[in-house]
C-alpha cells in the first residue's frame, strides 16, 4: 500500500506530509551575518569607487586645461599649462615591452621545466622558489639593477648598438664605436636596463600562470601523443602548448600589466628625460610612475591634478591589459570547477 502514497492521484491521503518550515532558530543570526558580509562588500566597493572617482575628478581638472594635447605633448610643465604624457607613456610602454620580451622566454622555459621535466620531488620546491621571487621587494631588484647590472650590461648594449645600430631602435647617438677612448656612460640608465630589471620582477607571475595552464593539459591526450610515438618535445608541442595557449597569452598580459605599473626599480635606474626616447640603449628614459615619484613633492595643486591625470592614464592602460589577460586565462580554464 505504501506505493500508493507516492501516486499523485491521492495526495490528500498523506495528511502528515505538510511542507516543512525550512527556517531554523538561527535566522536572525544569519541575517546579521549576511548583513555584515554585504556591509564589508559595500565598504570595499566604496573605497575602490572612491579611488576611481577621486582620481577621475582631479584628473578632469587637468584634462580640461590640456585637452587632447595631453596625449601629444612630451614636456611636463603643468604650471605653465604645457604638459602631456606622450614621452612618459611611450617610455612606460617601451620598458614594458622590453621587460615582457625578456620575461616571456624565461617564464615559459621555467614553467615548462617545472611542469614537464623536473623530478616530482623538487617540483614543490621550485614552485616555492618562483613564488619567493615574486615576493622579493622591488627595491632589492632596483639595487641589483642600479649597482650590479648597470656596470655589467653596458658591454652588451655597446655590442648591440655597434652591430645593429642601423635598426632605429638600437641606435645610440653621441658615441663613436671606433673610438677606443669613448666611455660607456651613454649606454647607462637606459630603457633597456630598466626593462631587464622589470623583466625579472614580472617573470614569476607570468611563470606561475603558465605553469598552472601547462599542468592542466589532459593526461589522456598526453598519453595519446606518447602512444603515437611522440618524443617528449613532440608531446609538448602538440598537446601541452596548444592546451596552455590561453595561459601563455594570459600570463604574458598579466606580466605586462605588472611591468607597466612598476615604479621604484625603474626610478632607481633611469635618468629621466622629457622627450620621446625611442632609442632603447641610449641613456635617458622615463615612465609615468617615475614621473609621479619625481614630481609629486614639488607639484602645486594643479600640478597634482596633472599627475593624477597621468596616473589615471596609466591605471586605464594596466586595467585594459589586466582585463584582457584575466578573461583569456578564465576562458582557458574550462572545467576547472571544484565543486565535489
Amino acid at each position: 500500500m505504501s506505493a500508493t502514497a507516492y501516486e499523485p492521484a491521492h495526495p490528500a491521503e498523506d495528511v502528515d506530509d505538510v511542507p516543512r518550515v525550512l527556517r531554523g532558530a538561527g535566522e536572525w543570526q544569519d541575517k546579521v551575518f549576511r548583513g555584515i558580509a554585504r556591509g564589508s562588500g559595500a565598504v570595499v566597493l566604496g573605497i575602490m569607487l572612491l579611488v576611481g572617482v577621486f582620481l577621475g575628478y582631479r584628473a578632469t581638472k587637468a584634462l580640461h586645461v590640456a585637452k587632447w594635447k595631453f596625449l601629444t605633448t612630451a614636456a611636463w610643465e603643468p604650471d605653465s599649462h604645457h604638459f602631456g604624457i606622450a614621452a612618459v607613456l611611450t617610455g612606460t610602454v617601451l620598458i614594458g615591452l622590453v621587460a615582457i620580451l625578456i620575461a616571456v622566454p624565461l617564464a615559459m622555459g621555467t614553467a615548462l621545466y617545472i611542469s614537464e621535466y623536473a623530478p616530482r620531488r623538487i617540483r614543490r620546491t621550485l614552485v616555492s622558489l618562483v613564488d619567493l621571487m615574486a615576493a622579493v621587494p622591488s627595491v632589492v631588484y632596483g639595487l641589483w639593477g642600479a649597482f650590479f647590472l648597470q656596470g655589467h650590461v653596458t658591454g652588451v648594449a655597446r655590442f648591440i648598438s655597434e652591430y645593429f645600430g642601423w635598426i632605429p631602435l638600437f641606435k645610440v647617438s653621441g658615441t663613436d664605436p671606433r673610438d677606443p677612448l669613448s666611455t660607456n656612460t651613454v649606454y647607462t640608465s637606459s630603457t633597456f636596463i630598466a626593462g631587464m630589471v622589470v623583466a625579472l620582477m614580472v617573470t614569476p607571475i607570468a611563470c606561475s600562470v603558465m605553469r598552472e595552464a601547462f599542468t592542466q593539459a589532459p593526461g589522456g591526450e598526453r598519453e595519446g601523443a606518447y602512444a603515437l610515438g611522440a618524443t617528449k618535445w613532440g608531446m609538448i608541442r602538440t598537446v601541452v602548448l596548444p592546451f596552455g595557449l590561453g595561459g601563455i597569452i594570459g600570463g604574458t598580459m598579466l606580466g605586462l600589466g605588472r611591468a607597466l605599473g612598476e615604479t621604484i626599480a625603474v626610478y632607481m635606474i633611469i635618468s629621466p628625460v622629457f622627450a620621446i626616447q625611442p632609442h632603447l640603449l641610449q641613456n635617458g628614459a622615463n615612465s609615468v610612475s617615475a614621473l609621479i615619484a619625481l614630481r609629486y613633492g614639488s607639484a602645486s595643486n594643479f600640478g597634482t591634478s596633472a599627475l593624477m591625470a597621468a596616473g589615471l592614464a596609466l591605471f586605464v592602460l594596466t586595467l585594459i591589459v589586466n582585463f584582457v589577460a584575466s578573461s583569456i586565462v578564465a576562458r582557458s580554464r574550462s572545467g576547472a570547477g571544484t565543486e565535489a
Partner: peptide, 27 residues
C-alpha cells in the same frame, strides 16, 4: 552584487602602487 564587487576588486589589482600612494597623498 557580489559579482560587481568581485569585478571592481579585480580591476583594483591593476592599480599601480604609486597611484595608490598618490591618492592617499592627495586626499
Amino acid at each position: 552584487y557580489a559579482r560587481l564587487v568581485r569585478t571592481i576588486v579585480e580591476a583594483m589589482t591593476a592599480l599601480p602602487s604609486i597611484v595608490a600612494g598618490l591618492f592617499i597623498y592627495a586626499t
